[in-house]
Design a protein around this nucleic acid. Structure first.
Length: 675
DNA sequence: GGGCACAGCAGGC
DNA sequence: TTCCAGCCTGCTGTGCCC
């Protein structure tokens, strides 16, 4: 169908389902060839008249108004304006082009039907049956050699298929991984011409960050449907959008994307929300919030309790509490309050949330949510990365223990951390891999261990923890061994041994020869008395907080124990170092630990692995060496990307090379909100 | 005017 | 594959205060 014809039919008032675009898109892989109109018409007819439908119509009307308003702005532009914006746009394009980095190759791996596939893997009887997946899993991997070999290896080890995209940057690698889904791959050469050709016909919706609204706006105002057209309309884009948005759109037109390794970002907020049957019953709404909830009633876990529990698991306190409401008409409202102090307890949360809700009533609601943000501002002793799990939390996690157990069965009894093994509890999380070297509690810098004197080539570029060390300590003890200023002329490091068995907190500082430097057995600043043993009174009541939980509530009791354990360790973490060390030592330790941690982090980083999506970053030099080998062998590199991969597969993998394997936490550069 | 808090929205997974 | 729900991030606009 010609573009003009398509455009005219899509505005046909006799076919209202064509603009009901919230329910269907052909942008996703595998949807080409589907009878779009038929699908849209059916969904439209079935949705018509519902509250959701009415809200969608309202949103669409707003979007149309926005498009009309921007069209009007466009119409007002004079020839002089357009010329000025064109000059500006051309300048920006040149500047952006100068940032093009073709020196690296990114491989984006996307697991096919990941959740269902994993569940079927663990329970083959599910194969072919409809199912809902509520849990996650992970696999570990090692060094793989450029995409087919990797996919084959994943399939061989797990039975799961994945799709891969190879491109010069993260943005394009993600797009490429979508092209031959499922169980396929696409390689985009690191050449400008190839990128520009690729981008010329690429629908804008394929780009991460361009969703339904942005697509409609770009199409509705400028008629832009492909990435290339972003450049053709660059002057108008610069005229109507903010600098951030315009830069993003122009970058898309140039096929530019981030080429640096994404960093694990600090968590900004944490929330909990629930949808329920629409209700105006104020008592019920307050109850859902947590007001008036009874501790004993764990079956009716409310929002405030949920949020408080999640916050405590990560040791977070926040200052801003936001109440999110969705009315029965699907209208979303948020109401926030910023407090002078951090809060994290369910009692505090519910107190402030109740005030926020009261101000909104009466209302008929179908969803409520609570979000905490502005974490731990000004609070001392808080980990710089709240998303990073503490070792104690990790150890207390059943899943984590399971992984350790698996590793424990290795023939060489070596738990290799940072190179081949990582842990992830959330396939969506941006690389929530567990990294021993990043924890406060466990820094293995043993001055007597000769391994640390070896260079990276000897150690394989990573740290190996002897499983014996680990096993000795995971049971009841945390051991901190840090390189510190020598307290004695012997020049050896000091070791702090912390015994945090339930009901006991004892710390002993030893010098490098094992002599006792200091010993503390003082009370923790924690609200939980460290000397107080943790147990169930009459096998029923928590000895710490008094909550009652029957013995049959095994999981709930375990979670409750985890909560107290986390609370205790969090407090210990913030108090421990200061109690044991002299001021000078504190300073030196902080500095050295920081450096040590950073060094280890750098060395450990090539191994971070997560799922369901994974990005692997190769240096172009590595790849070129492989290419040269292929050319020398007379095989050549044809235009067929698959042929390229086949050739490379035949070259044996080089075990010396490691590459960055990182999670894909987010799309490359997100556009800012369109003005 | 700058900084901050708040409200809302878009988008990814 | 779609949708929605849930959770998260990031951006913009507005209003208030200093």
């Amino acid at each position: 169908m010609e573009e003009s014809e398509k455009s005219s039919t899509e505005n046909d008032p006799a076919r209202p389902w064509q603009s009901y675009n919230t329910v269907y898109t052909i942008a996703k892989a595998g949807m080409e060839g589907v009878d779009k109109e038929k699908v849209q018409r059916i969904v439209y007819e079935m949705s018509k008249g519902s509250k959701y439908f009415e809200n969608e119509e309202k949103k669409e009307t707003y979007m149309k108004q926005k498009i009309e308003s921007m069209r009007a702005q466009l119409a007002k532009l004079t020839a002089v304006d357009i010329s000025r914006y064109q000059k500006f746009a051309d300048k920006r394009i040149v500047e952006l082009e100068a940032t093009r980095d073709l020196s690296r190759i990114w491989l984006h791996v996307d697991m096919d039907a990941f959740y269902a596939a994993v569940e079927t893997l663990s329970d083959p009887s599910l194969k072919g049956k409809p199912m809902a997946v509520g849990s996650m899993s992970m696999i570990s991997t090692a060094n793989y050699e450029v995409a087919e070999e990797l996919r084959e290896s994943v399939h061989k080890e797990t039975g799961l298929t994945c799709s891969a995209g190879v491109a010069p940057n993260r943005l394009l690698a993600k797009v490429c991984s979508d092209i031959n889904k499922p169980n396929g791959q696409f390689v985009l050469p690191n050449e400008r011409m190839a990128v520009m050709t690729f981008i010329s016909s690429l629908p804008i919706r394929k780009i991460g960050g361009i969703g339904k609204v942005t697509e409609n706006i770009l199409k509705g105002i400028f008629g832009i449907t492909t990435c290339e057209e972003m450049l053709q309309k660059s002057s108008f884009i610069c005229a109507l959008f903010s600098r951030t948005s315009a830069d993003f759109f122009l970058s898309v037109g140039l096929g530019l994307g981030r080429t640096d390794t994404p960093q694990v970002t600090q968590r900004k907020s944490m929330s909990s929300e629930r949808t329920f049957s629409p209700t105006e019953d104020e008592a019920l709404l307050f109850q859902k919030l947590g007001a008036g909830a009874v501790w004993k009633n764990l079956f009716a876990v409310d929002l405030s309790e949920n949020l408080a529990s999640d916050l405590k698991k990560e040791g977070l306190c926040g200052r801003t509490l936001t109440l999110k409401l969705k009315t029965s008409c699907f209208e979303v409202r948020t109401r926030a309050v910023t407090l002078p102090d951090n809060i994290c307890s369910s009692e505090d949360i519910v107190k402030h949330a109740t005030k926020l809700l009261k101000a909104e009533l009466p209302a008929s609601l179908r969803l409520m949510g609570l979000r905490m943000s502005h974490f731990n501002e000004g609070k001392k002793g808080v980990a710089s990365d709240p998303k990073q799990r503490t070792l104690s939390n990790f150890i207390a996690t059943k899943d984590a223990m399971g992984r350790v157990s698996e590793s424990n069965t290795d023939d060489d009894n070596t738990l290799s951390i940072g190179r081949e093994t990582s842990f992830s509890s959330d396939a969506h999380a941006p690389c929530e891999s567990f990294n021993f070297m990043d924890t406060h509690q466990m820094l293995f810098v043993d001055p007597t261990d000769k391994r640390h004197g070896q260079n990276e080539a000897e150690t394989g570029g990573s740290f190996d923890l002897q499983i014996d060390d680990f096993r000795d300590n995971v049971d009841n003890h945390d051991v901190v061994r840090d390189a510190m200023d020598p307290p004695y002329p012997t020049g050896t490091g000091e070791v702090v041994v912390r015994d945090s068995s339930p009901g006991l907190l004892k710390e002993t500082s030893l010098d490098g020869l094992g002599r006792v430097v200091s010993c503390t057995d003082e009370e923790s600043a924690s609200s939980l008395n460290p000397k107080e043993p943790f147990f169930w009174l009459n096998d029923y009541q928590c000895s710490v907080c008094g909550i009652e939980l029957p013995p049959s509530f095994v999981e709930e009791r375990q979670e409750h124990f985890d909560f107290h354990l986390a609370e205790r360790l969090q407090d210990e973490e913030s108090n421990n170092v200061n109690r044991v060390l002299k001021p000078k030592q504190r300073f030196t330790q902080k500095d050295e630990v920081s450096q040590s941690r950073q060094r280890k982090k750098q060395r450990a980083s090539p191994s971070a692995v997560c799922f369901k999506e994974m990005i692997i970053n190769f240096s172009l030099a590595d790849v070129n060496a492989r290419r040269q080998n292929l050319l020398k062998s007379g095989e050549g590199l044809g235009a067929d990307p698959k042929a390229r991969v086949r050739k490379q597969k035949e070259t044996p993998a080089d075990p010396e090379k490691t590459h960055n394997i990182v999670a894909d936490p987010s799309p490359d550069t997100k556009p800012s909100k369109i003005k």
